[in-house]
Amino acid sequence: MAKIIVVTSGKGGVGKTTTSAAIGTGLALRGFKTVIVDFDVGLRNLDLIMGCERRVVYDFVNLINGDSNMNQTLIKDKRSENLFILPASQTRDKDALTPEGVERVLEELKENFDYIVCDSPAGIEKGAHLAMYFADEAVVVTNPEVSSVRDSDRILGLLSSKSRRAENGEKIKEHLLLTRYNPERVENGEMLSVADVEDILSIPLLGVIPESQAVLKASNQGVPVIMDDKSDAGQAYSDAVERLLGKDVAHRFLEAQKKGLLQRLFGGR
């Protein structure tokens, strides 16, 4: 049975698109047929991060409106046989995504894929609601700061009350993904710790992704950071995908690096 996973947060700029690209790619690299669906109408970041922006012809709204069919609209990833992208529309009209249309497209995708990863827009309004409504599981992306945690808390409230599963008396499986984690700043008391965030949100921790230069580098190159298996963020995302698949993997990158004398002198990272 295909699984629909929504990557959501409430707050913008916390790493949802980065995470959707990484998790989608990670699942595909492990042999699962995966499609990443960009729900962020009007912004369209996912195809940039996936490096397929020059191959976009049709989009989600075209597909809903019947201007194109599934084959014409899905973009096949260059790196993995198993990975496809459904790009968002550039249209300004946020109402272009209708609940019936989204449901129809997701049902069709379910017949052909193992995983459907939905990259949610920010906010708690219609777009974010549509992205989560049909989900089986949710990856709630949170940064270690109070406003982000609050927004995630609200999103968790919507997941447990305003989703199709909730309406049917079922539960969406919830995962906490703490991103842009900076252990030094946590030690200095400038950011919330993993324990603080877990205490407030009280849902299982899927992973902690460190704040990392590798993320910006990867997105500039149009390569999902999970492909950079030398980088801390890439490894942390791989661990998270393993956990999503049910493996028990120890958490890493939670402690500040002890800086050596040379590093301290030259301020290296």
Partner: peptide, 8 residues
């Protein structure tokens, strides 16, 4: 029995 979230 479930957490009561912000906004609820």
């Amino acid at each position: 029995t479930e957490p009561v979230r912000g906004g609820q």
